[in-house]
């Protein structure tokens, strides 16, 4: 497949960008011109070749640099990775799922040899060669979730299932859309979604929970979620909110196309067999408005969706400071022509 890993930054000088060939595979989340909140869960079945849905865990040109940024976040704040004691079995479940998936889907980059419980993992892009005993945490340099979590793009949380609830009892979260793992760990499904507006009243979370409690082994599902981020910054955590929130004030009519990024999360949900827990992968994609409008359909649709957002959502996603500038920037790209259904480019 010939992936060339970019050497780029997600902080300070922000050299992150998408290669021209990477733009069209962006998982544009808006399937129609009008914004509508929906659970939009679909089976996580293999998508078209080259798309971000081709495999369960998507590796792209940003892989090596994203992993470097994660290591920096964890070095500065170890609480971004936490697992309650009863989650050890689930941690191994996660490690097994990720290693077997990556080795199967990207054999040129990852190899897994298994001989009973003697495992040998090779990660070529990151230069990792690790022999260990499966289910024996003392044979790894980190706990299993952290060991593999440092090697896969996207954040991960693991939900324990008990008493007809899901409990976020473990996670490695370094590139989140403004929520704190350290604060939320141990919460149930309704509690950690507590700050989300409108959806509770619409019964969205009750339906989603009921669906997830019955998620089956081998039948993962996915959904897309989105927000906006100023600068291609991965660490938009509440912990560092006082350091990045002022970025919003730096948007001007001149730089809005470069500064404002659509941040899409492809969320995958997997039933873990040994622990009966659910792995939640939150794989983020960033693209500047400037790059989004190079796809005519997206240039037409994005301003229409932005204009139709309910005020509660504008506030929840903190878009207020720059939404008008963003709309003014996007306006010339909407020629009024109809758009085709679905999110993909024409």
């Amino acid at each position: 497949m010939g992936l060339t890993f970019r050497n780029e930054t997600f902080r300070d000088d922000f050299t992150y960008t998408n290669s021209p060939s990477n733009i069209r595979r962006f998982p544009f989340p808006f399937v129609e011109d009008q914004y509508r909140y929906s659970v939009n869960i679909e089976p996580h079945t293999p998508g078209p070749k080259g798309s971000p849905f081709e495999y369960h865990f998507d590796v792209d040109e940003h892989y090596v640099s994203e992993m470097r940024d994660r290591a920096m976040v964890l070095a500065a704040d170890p609480l971004r990775c936490q697992a309650l004691p009863h989650m050890m079995t689930a941690q191994w479940d996660m490690l097994e799922l990720l290693m077997t998936s990556l080795a199967r889907d990207y054999p040129e980059h990852f190899t897994l040899h298994r001989d009973g419980s003697a495992w040998h993992w090779i990660n070529r892009p990151l230069g990792i060669d690790q022999k260990f005993t499966f289910l024996d945490a003392s044979t790894l340099p980190y706990q299993p979730m952290e060991f593999i979590g440092r090697q896969v793009q996207g954040d991960f949380s693991i939900q324990d299932q008990r008493d007809n609830q899901l409990w976020m009892d473990a996670g490695i979260i370094t590139s989140q859309a403004d929520w704190s793992l350290d604060f939320d760990v141990g919460m149930n499904f309704f509690e950690w979604h507590g700050p989300v507006p409108l959806a509770h009243e619409a019964g969205v979370f009750e339906r989603a929970l009921k669906f997830l409690l019955n998620l089956q082994i081998g039948k993962p599902v996915r959904r897309l979620n989105w927000t906006m981020t100023i600068n291609p910054r991965l660490d938009t955590s509440p912990e560092n909110y006082h350091k990045w929130a002022s970025d919003r004030m730096t948007v001007t009519p001149e730089n809005v196309g470069k500064k404002v990024h659509l941040r899409v999360e492809m969320q995958g949900l997997f039933r873990l067999p040994r622990s009966n827990a659910i792995l939640f992968s939150i794989r983020g994609y960033l693209m500047s408005f400037e790059q989004i409008v190079t796809v005519p359909k997206w240039g037409r649709r994005l301003p229409r969706v932005l204009a139709s957002l309910p005020p509660e959502l504008v506030e929840y996603k903190s878009l207020g400071r720059y939404r008008d500038m963003a709309l003014a920037y996007l306006a010339p790209y909407d020629d009024g022509a109809p758009t085709s259904p679905g999110g993909g480019p024409d």
């Binding site: 704190s180 604060f183 919460m187 509440p238 909110y241 006082h242 350091k243 990045w244 929130a245």
Partner: peptide, 14 residues
């Protein structure tokens, strides 16, 4: 519940 606390977030970060 784990921390027995409400969350405080910088109010003038922007």
């Amino acid at each position: 519940r784990r921390l027995a606390a409400f969350q405080g977030v910088c109010i003038d970060a922007e």
